[in-house]
């Protein structure tokens, strides 16, 4: 299911994100799962994700700040869909 861009999202307390040169690592303490993320913009977005504003607005702001294009926006949105499915982000 796609993420709901009208809603705010957060990283649950049982999830930790660590930036790496190739992108980043995500660890879920509750099921001991480790994930490799191969996009540094995605990792930077996750690190900044604080649930303050709806996901769509946060994405647009991030994309504008970074000067990313429409394709990169879609790539981020798709990646967030997958991360929600893995319990790495959740709707507030």
């Amino acid at each position: 299911m796609p993420v709901n861009t009208q809603q705010s999202y957060e990283i649950p307390p049982q999830v930790s994100v660590r930036p790496e040169r190739f992108g980043g690592l995500v660890y879920r303490y509750d099921n001991r799962a480790l994930y490799f993320l191969h996009s540094r913009p995605l990792v930077d977005f996750l690190v900044e994700l604080d649930g303050e504003k709806p996901l769509g607005a946060a994405l647009e702001e991030f994309v504008a700040e970074r000067g990313l294009d429409e394709g990169e926006y879609r790539a981020l949105e798709n990646a967030l869909d997958q991360l929600e499915g893995k319990g790495i982000i959740r709707e507030l």
């Binding site: 660590r18 930036p19 790496e20 040169r21 190739f22 690592l25 480790l34 490799f36």
Partner: peptide, 11 residues
Amino acid sequence: DLLRSGLEAPI
């Protein structure tokens, strides 16, 4: 290849 540049911390 991914690891050549080194991770920020061990896994």
